[in-house]
Design a protein around this nucleic acid. Structure first.
Lengths: 182, 182
DNA sequence: ACTAACCGGAAGATTGCCGTCCACTTAGGA
DNA sequence: TCCTAAGTGGACGGCAATCTTCCGGTTAGT
């Protein structure tokens, strides 16, 4: 792949994220192309159909999150603290419609998105480990699982609000046995 | 209005709620008509445009919620308990896409929806009163307002999940100074 | 300097929804 | 029972937006 082509590919994915964020998964290809300062033809050459493009975005997206989880794990704080900072990090991202788009992607589409599915599964496992540790130590209420965290993060990701971070902090206060506001 | 016409009007609103819930505000009129077992012509006669139909749904929607708030207020429990049961009631409703649809309705459309806007404003006032009382008594953390509650309820309404009620309970545990899980 | 790879975007095809219109049916009063 | 104003369904012409291809022109990189 020629260097200029590579550059364009990246710009397209980036543009797609921006456009999808404000117009949804069904945003016209031309909008994406324009945002990337590229012709529609170029988009179609690189991504044979809309789905290929979505998959590319999804991969990028999930990797960013997985990286954040890694950082939280490696921060050397305890399990609960790691969870807390991971959750708050997610809250700061304001991913908006991209999260929503991925959330209600037709089941069948996921089947071709190997990368995404794998990374995601791995993340859930690691989250589960953190949760288990935190709960063993009694730092976290027992009726919340890693999947609940994922769900909650996704819900808030879909609804960026000015006070989103604040709401997550409240949730954490409800979850974290060690934290007492006030 | 003839009795059969009245009946149809009601069926249409009901059908619209169901269809909007699963297809969004832009759902084709024909789907709504079919769901109501009625011709498109009938829908158009009763509701000159899509907006009129949305307004009708919105009115019904907001009234249901306002009624629930009234019940909570009248239950004779304290302010915090009333808030708690109102919030949980909302969580049980699973309004889904209808809430989402109303949430990002273009600003200008609201201007014609007198009924909706009025009832909603009244609800906010009553919520504010409850919050103020609860906070004065120290039963509720001070950095959460009635508008935050509305936002949160809306967010959860937009994302019905099996454990939605559970999540709200966690939120409440984060908000309610008197509640200590475990 | 040469060429394989790449690019833009015009244009034709397709899709899906809108909203009207009118021939037919029915509720409900006289 | 009869009569008619009110109500009904859904086919249809029109429109607008998006898809996707295709090709003449450009450029990176050897």
């Amino acid at each position: 792949m020629r260097a200029d082509a590579r550059r364009n590919r990246d710009r397209i994915v980036e543009a797609a994220r921006a456009v999808v964020a404000e117009r949804g998964v069904d945003a016209p290809m031309e909008l994406i192309a324009r945002r990337a300062e590229v012709g529609v033809g170029t988009v179609y050459r690189r991504f044979p159909d809309r789905h290929a493009l979505i998959a590319a975005m999804a991969d990028q997206y999930i990797h960013e999150i997985a990286d954040a989880l890694t950082k939280a794990e490696e921060s050397g704080e305890g399990a609960m603290a790691a969870l807390r900072s991971f959750v708050l990090w997610c809250g700061d991202q304001g991913r908006g419609a991209l999260a929503a788009a991925l959330a209600d992607l037709p089941q069948e589409l996921f089947e071709e998105m190997r990368e995404f599915v794998t990374v995601r599964a791995n993340m859930v496992e690691r989250l589960e480990a953190l949760v288990a540790t935190a709960q063993e130590r009694g730092e976290m209420r027992a009726d919340v699982g890693a999947d609940d965290l994922m769900t909650l993060l996704n819900i808030f990701a879909c609804h960026p609000t000015p006070r989103g971070g604040h709401y997550l902090r409240i949730m954490l206060d409800g979850i974290d046995n060690g934290s007492r506001h006030r």
